[in-house]
Design a protein around this nucleic acid. Structure first.
Lengths: 231, 231
DNA sequence: TGTCGTATGGTACGTCGTACGAGTCAACTG
DNA sequence: CAGTTGACTCGTACGACGTACCATACGACA
């Protein structure tokens, strides 16, 4: 536990140059934190949360299992890094007109939600992981936007958490209904078998066809209406 | 996989009656689904999600590990049952005056949130587990209340999911900040060490002292304002 | 007395995270 | 040039896990 995890960039392996000295050809580039995290995300996308094991990760990287532990403290670390990786923000860094703050907020939050829905495992992972720099960066951006829009400092925390909660809730709900696969079967079974116990749910077909995107936008509008300073 | 998991109630062991025939005294009551679930909740409360293992559960129950599998399909099953157990609803079953629907909704949702905060593991578990009967029961109750309050069927799903999302988001956020313990250390470190990167967050002390309950109530009010029919 | 459904649990297998320590290699020091 | 150091890789091994398989016990009924 010393100098480990310096932001060591692996130098691009320029092919043809510097022929491999004595060893049998190593067809994989050297390990790096970057490669590990990228591969972990791939693995999570392909196999889900339980599909990520250190052995499989090493296999994909063409390395020994224990080599990973030079770059990473433990498996939880991998989860933290993968989660934060997925939440990198590549948004317009342009200064926005002050009167467009609402559109700016909506854009930030929808991008956030989209990023997580692209990797459904991230939604179920976030509740129990630490806040990485990218997550904090998004929170900071949101804070600044609201602050510049005129939200008083005293109301800022309430505003931020309300919006955060909305994004988290919508995303998690959406994602957990997306990847179930037996969702339809289970829901159908419950609805037909127990329709007399849950008549209202059945009537509104709550579990079968809901407009996730519309719900997100509509709830967001209500929150922003309430949070925004009158003007 | 046949008649298993019938709601087999274990008959109360009436002490003194029917002396133990030949075996050495079995000081534990017989296994039952009920006992298993209750003990699983205790174990989760005490040790957290990773603390629940089939071996530890069996140890607490004074039984062999494999005996659990007569009552339960697998470990995921235990999670589902424990989660739903925690969400039993013991609310006032009274018929409410139609003009009090708003208080009724607030009560239902606050009770929901309180139940989950009593068992912080439930918040991080819910996103990836199936909907049990108690959860569906709460959704049904919420649906009926809103429906009787005059929310049109077309808007019902949006209303329910918006409220559900709010409860989920608030609870998960709150719970994940509650049980971290290194929260303060990590947050402090980030704030002092990286204060120039997240100035707005630092200024508002977002990660240190936020009013979770107030945020929940205020966001809920905004949502209800938006969702309720004008009257 | 047998047979059957209900219930218990010991043993064993494959998989997991990771501690430990030996190994390789480039860069630097003298 | 030899020697040392530090960055990095990885084979082996250990304890813990979920659970498949199978032997057992017991009350009820034939």
């Amino acid at each position: 536990m010393v100098a480990k995890r310096s932001g060591a960039q692996s130098k691009r392996a320029r092919p043809g140059e510097l022929p491999r000295p004595v060893q049998e050809p190593r067809n994989e580039p050297p390990l790096s934190l970057e490669r590990i995290v990228v591969t972990a995300v791939e693995l999570l996308d392909a196999q889900g949360i339980d599909g990520l094991t250190m052995r499989r990760l090493a296999e994909r990287l063409g390395s020994g299992v224990m080599s990973l532990y030079w770059h990473v403290d433990n498996k939880e670390d991998v989860f933290d890094l993968a989660l934060d990786k997925v939440l990198e923000y590549r948004g317009a860094p342009e200064a926005t007109e002050p009167q467009e703050w609402r559109a700016e907020v909506i854009h930030v939050l929808e991008d956030w939600r989209t990023s997580m829905l692209r990797h459904p495992w991230s939604a179920s992972l976030l509740p129990r992981r630490a806040l990485g720099p990218n997550i904090l960066g998004r929170l900071e951006l949101l804070s600044r936007t609201l602050s510049e829009a005129g939200v008083a400092d005293a109301d800022l925390n309430v505003a931020i958490w309300s919006l955060w909660n909305h994004v988290m809730g919508s995303t998690i709900t959406r994602a957990s209904f997306e990847l179930s696969d037996d969702d339809k079967a289970a829901a159908q079974q419950r609805l037909t078998g127990l329709s007399e116990r849950y008549p209202t749910i059945e009537r509104s077909r709550l579990l079968l066809d809901s407009d996730w995107d519309g719900t997100f936008r509509q709830g967001l509008d209500f929150l922003l209406d309430g949070l925004a300073p009158r003007q």
